[in-house]
């Protein structure tokens, strides 16, 4: 049907779905962990704060292959978490992508949170808000930067190939449905076979996905900030 060498539509759709699923869950997880961290670090003053923020931004440059190797060691049957039998599953890929996306998310949303004026929070406290109310208010004020953080983390996750190749194992079942093969790892297979055109075509699909996600994110962000200004 949609012949592309020996790539059929089932294959293309399922590697795309695995890419989206793994990256989306990883970004949601890192948001659930990272936003509270960004809020806490952003509002507290403590000794060594600048060291903590430096460490977080260093994490943005962490080589994905190293993260993959560490997760492999942890999840291997001969490793400490071997009994969970998570190696070579989508869950293992989610773990490594969460680790990769987290510093990006925390770092970018931290600067967004820190740009919310202190006066605003003081006023919110003064009018009787609980700390949860204040946090929500800050998130709302900083939403532009936080959406940017989510998109940056998503870009890091979905385009990443080093760690998912190692901990996912690049598995496709014999009926052409992907188990742990993503668009990026599929590109490595085509490159290895010397099918450069096919690899670039898969890259075009990946690019179209990232573009779509960014367009949706930008629309959401701009619509909301326009409403906020009114």
């Amino acid at each position: 049907m949609f012949g592309l060498g020996d790539l059929n539509l089932t294959y293309l759709v399922s590697i795309t779905v695995v890419s989206l699923y793994v990256s989306t869950v990883a970004v949601l997880l890192s948001a659930a962990i990272g936003l509270p961290v960004a809020l806490t670090v952003g509002f507290r003053d403590f000794r060594g704060k600048s060291i903590v923020t430096s460490i977080i931004s260093t994490g943005m440059g962490f080589p994905s292959v190293v993260v993959g190797l560490v997760v492999l060691l942890m999840l291997s049957r001969s490793g400490p978490l071997g009994e969970l039998e998570l190696l070579f599953t989508p869950e293992a890929m989610i773990i490594s992508q969460t680790i990769l996306a987290l510093p990006v998310l925390v770092s970018v949303s931290l600067s967004a949170v820190q740009s919310v004026p202190q006066d605003l929070r003081d006023a919110a406290f003064a009018t009787g808000g609980t700390s949860v109310d204040v946090a929500l208010l800050v998130v709302r004020e900083a939403r532009y930067g936080i959406v940017t953080a989510l998109l940056a983390a998503y870009g890091r996750a979905i385009s990443e190939v080093g760690s998912v190749l190692i901990v996912g194992g690049n598995i496709v079942f014999s009926d052409s449905t992907s188990f742990t093969r993503t668009l990026t790892t599929a590109i490595t297979v085509e490159a290895r076979k010397g099918n450069i055109e096919t690899g670039i075509a898969l890259g075009a699909i990946l690019l179209a996905l990232v573009l779509t996600v960014n367009a949706l994110g930008a629309r959401f962000r701009d619509r909301n900030s326009a409403g906020g200004n009114r």
């Binding site: 949609f2 055109e197 075509a201 075009a204 699909i205 996905l209």
Partner: peptide, 26 residues
């Protein structure tokens, strides 16, 4: 083949756009 693949990519991309949000769907 390359053009074909680019076409498939465009179709996949478009189908993502038409959905209100493709993430929950996926």
């Amino acid at each position: 083949r390359f053009l074909h693949a680019a076409g498939v990519g465009a179709i996949l991309g478009l189908s993502g756009c038409t959905g209100e949000s493709n993430e929950p769907q996926a």
